[in-house]
């Protein structure tokens, strides 16, 4: 589904954000990407749908090369859902309008069809009563659930999550994780940048550990939590699991 082959990326002339990254996510697989801040995990996930350009290597999404100038990027991006750390709901649109915008303008669905789909998904994330509110009137956890629903409204073949819970108050994290766990159990292909190791333990198939732009460890979940091979991953785990 997602293939990342020998990807190198630089910010500006000197700073290398990604160093020879290679991994893949199979259909229906849930892959958690973790690592210290500045390790390149967010950059990596943003390269998958070409929000960030790469300079070397290739990324292939459902058989289509992302970093090919001939690729119709908007069309490709519409097939991959993305959830951001800061939700990024459109503040001037009501919740339901946030869910309809992409469906109508990108997928060309009729307004009624988009509204019906939107309402169904809002119900699914437990927010059907909030359809006519504006994003700023919702809590962080609610906004993030709307953001997930907005991505799902496009019927994506895969979902990318960029630290979906790091901007949330602790008591709101679980309501977002619950939605994500359900999604994973339904067989959605997911690539998730997160520090929520509980989530990784519960539903991840594989865990990728990054440090300084490199994929240091790419292991099956049980192997990763059982015996991380690299020192750096061990240190990282002991730090975040000690509390």
């Amino acid at each position: 589904m997602i293939e990342i082959n020998h990807v190198n990326k630089w910010y500006g002339p000197t700073f290398q954000a990604l160093k020879d990254c290679t991994t893949k996510v199979a259909k229906g697989e849930v892959v958690v990407v973790c690592g210290p801040s500045g390790s390149g995990k967010s950059t990596l996930i943003k390269c998958v749908n070409a929000l960030e350009p790469i300079q070397e290597g290739e990324i292939i999404l459902d058989g289509i090369k992302v970093n090919d100038p001939k690729t119709d990027l908007p069309k490709l991006r519409a097939r991959v859902g993305m959830v951001f750390q800061h939700f990024e709901l459109f503040p001037h649109l009501k919740i339901i309008e946030n869910l309809c915008l992409g469906q109508e303008k990108v997928l060309g669905r009729s307004h009624d069809e988009a509204m019906a789909k939107g309402a169904k998904l809002l119900d699914r994330v437990g927010l059907k009563d909030h359809a006519n509110k504006y994003p700023a009137e919702l809590s962080g956890g609610q906004q993030q659930r709307v953001a997930i629903a907005r991505a799902l409204a496009m019927d994506p073949i895969a979902m990318l999550f960029d630290e979906p819970t790091s901007a949330l108050d602790p008591e709101m994290i679980s309501e977002v994780l619950d939605v994500m766990v359900d999604l994973a159990r339904e067989g959605m292909t997911m690539m998730v940048v997160t520090h929520e190791m509980g989530f990784a333990r519960k539903v991840a198939h594989r865990v990728i550990f990054m440090d300084q732009g490199e994929i240091v460890e790419d292991a099956q979940k049980d192997d990763f939590f059982g015996k991380p091979r690299s020192d750096r991953a061990q240190k990282f785990l002991s730090k975040i699991l000690s509390h």
């Binding site: 943003k46 929000l51 991006r77 951001f84 459109f90 992409g102 907005r150 991505a151």
Partner: peptide
């Protein structure tokens, strides 16, 4: 980025 990611 959110607008772009939606496919707009």
């Amino acid at each position: 980025q959110a607008a772009t990611a939606l496919g707009l």
